[in-house]
Nucleic acid binder design. Structure first.
Lengths: 215, 215
DNA sequence: ACATGGGCGTACCGTACGGTACGGTTCGAT
DNA sequence: ATCGAACCGTACCGTACGGTACGCCCATGT
């Protein structure tokens, strides 16, 4: 754990990014069985270089998770003219991005790794994933919800509760089941239903918090 | 992984249960840093006995998780005379039990361990936790939902979707944040709000699926 | 042409831990 | 009283892996 958390994007050389890619690939393949020797071999570099660049195993892991987590795409929504149609579109966009992210192999691996890590002392990975996952969603969704409330499109006592309800309606039990390796819930299985789920979540959210009867 | 999954409760001698308790305690304390030597020392038994009883490390882990996961309390609800009041009470009871289970240290540890395990090949732990967690809830909740639908108290296209919505409304982002070790979300913090959250979840569920306007 | 430094490959070390072996002790059965 | 099974404590073995050291290559600057 030699590296401090840098909120801004770390500047990695292409060679270093290749190493991080190799590490991520190994993580996805072998689970947490990531060994320094394996990374070095995969990336065709020497272990000495790994230690020079990343300090120790935790540093490499942290760099990998952070570098990858920061890549999570976040939807840009138009806040300027909010009507009910635009709001619904925004909600659906958020739901779609959240779901597609969550069911991706990379996301599953990152979350598993961070959870494994959180079981010990080392809290960094958990916070990194948290910041780039749920918290990032929250930061970007809340202003929209509040803008919609100001525009009399939504009504809720506080935006935190509204955000969490939205999160629950979208994610449901999908993430925990994927993390636990539920074999009855493949990615492709979920993927096929994304559009229906997205629409249902937006509908339900608007039913609960919309000012007018849901359209 | 010497032991096959036994669906029925394993019959462990008191001494063996003491060993499993020691293993669980170590798991809660040290995360996944569970070593056979530590268990043997904690339980005042020899490693040879551990291997004799549980086969190998995975066997011990599986036995521990399974034995503990089977202890999850499940609410008994009265299905005989369902009115809206009884239905609401049942929903709140389910929500309360689900939340109190999820935020417990034992549950967090079990889920973390199973997720760590699921990252490798060994799928057993994930399925065990899944079966005794979300799936157990589902098995017990679904009949009630269907009974309520037959009694014209609820209306939904299919009970699976209704169950999953309920799950999402109750759990929201609490579980993933706890699993990731979110320091801004302590158990006591959540505990204080359980009753309010339970009521909110039931209200929202009835708003979405109740036949009459929610009371 | 030659020095220098970054990086590759490999060999090596120390330790932690899974798994085994064995002597000693308790306890119940005969 | 004796035997044997179960079990405790401890010592031991093999291996895997984190971390270090070193020799060599190669590119770049002077």
């Amino acid at each position: 754990m030699a590296l401090a958390i840098k909120v801004n994007e770390e500047t990695f050389t292409p060679r270093q990014q290749a190493v991080l890619t190799a590490a991520l690939d190994l993580l996805v393949e072998n689970g947490d069985g990531l060994t320094m020797t394996a990374v070095a071999r995969r990336a065709s570099c020497s272990k000495e270089t790994l230690y020079k660049w990343f300090g120790d195993r935790d540093g490499l892991l942290t760099a990998t998770v952070q570098w990858q987590a920061a890549k999570v795409r976040m939807p840009f929504v138009d806040r300027s003219h909010l009507n009910i149609k635009a709001l619904r579109a925004s909600l659906e966009q958020f739901a779609r991005d959240l779901l597609t992210t969550i069911i991706g192999e990379v996301s599953i691996t990152l979350n598993r790794t961070a959870i494994t890590h959180a079981a010990q002392e080392k809290d960094d990975l958990g916070n990194i994933v948290l910041e780039n996952g749920p918290m990032a969603i929250r930061r970007r969704l809340k202003p929209i919800l509040e803008a919609a409330r100001d525009a009399r499109l939504l009504r809720f006592p506080n935006s935190e509760e509204a955000y969490r309800t939205f999160y629950g309606l979208v994610v449901r039990d999908v993430q925990i089941r994927l993390l636990l390796g539920d074999k009855g819930l493949t990615q492709s299985n979920v993927e096929a239903n994304i559009e229906a789920d997205v629409k249902a979540a937006a509908d339900q959210f608007l039913t609960l918090y919309g000012v007018k009867a849901n359209s």
